[in-house]
């Protein structure tokens, strides 16, 4: 067993975990944060995407022990207490969600992207979302949602 300490969605956690546990299992099974999904288990689909120290990673391919000392955000940590995050609003308003199973992973990829590039172009969005498979939407309304999310986030910054 390994002791790990990390911060997730603003909360400090200290856990004793199995050595071979994935970060995904830590998040879903131990912390009961089931918004993060397992779609393939081998890093192909992106449904398990989380942000670790600001970067999008597949939590199924990350060892739980490697969470030690990091700052993690999952889909549950996106929204502020007073409402939805811009990226969430944008996906609702632009019909970027169908079955919703890939959605948390996509939101986390987009969240990391917008922190890195506040106003991404089509190619940058495409390079980011290529690691998140969606079988329902054909991605078109997702692209629209991401562009809108960037616009909303940009507005927020100006006001803030």
């Amino acid at each position: 067993m390994v002791n790990i300490k990390f911060k997730i969605n603003g909360q400090k956690k200290a856990l004793n975990i199995h050595d071979d546990m994935t970060a995904l299992a830590v998040i879903r099974s131990l912390l009961k944060l089931t918004g993060t999904k397992e779609g393939c288990g081998i890093g192909e689909c992106g449904a398990c995407t989380i942000n670790v120290d600001g970067k999008a990673v597949n939590s199924c391919l990350m060892l739980g022990a490697q969470l030690d000392g990091t700052t993690v955000v999952t889909v549950e940590g996106l929204a502020a207490k007073d409402g939805l995050a811009p990226v969430q609003k944008a996906f609702i308003e632009n019909h970027g969600v169908q079955c919703g199973f890939c959605t948390p992973g996509i939101l986390m990829s987009v969240n990391a992207l917008l922190q890195e590039i506040p106003d991404p172009g089509h190619e940058e969005i495409s390079k980011t979302l290529a690691g998140n498979l969606c079988r329902c939407t054909g991605y078109s309304q997702i692209f629209t949602s991401v562009k809108e999310a960037a616009r909303l986030a940009g507005q927020g910054d100006q006001h803030g």
Binding site: T22, I42, G43, N58, L61, A65, Q66
Partner: peptide, 26 residues
């Protein structure tokens, strides 16, 4: 040895990894 883990973790999941230690050099 595990660094990024993107190859190693696939073997961890499938049970194909028959080692005693995972050495994290990341």
């Amino acid at each position: 040895i595990i660094a990024g883990g993107t190859d190693v973790m696939i073997d961890v999941r499938s049970g194909a990894l028959d080692k005693k230690y995972l050495l994290d050099i990341s």
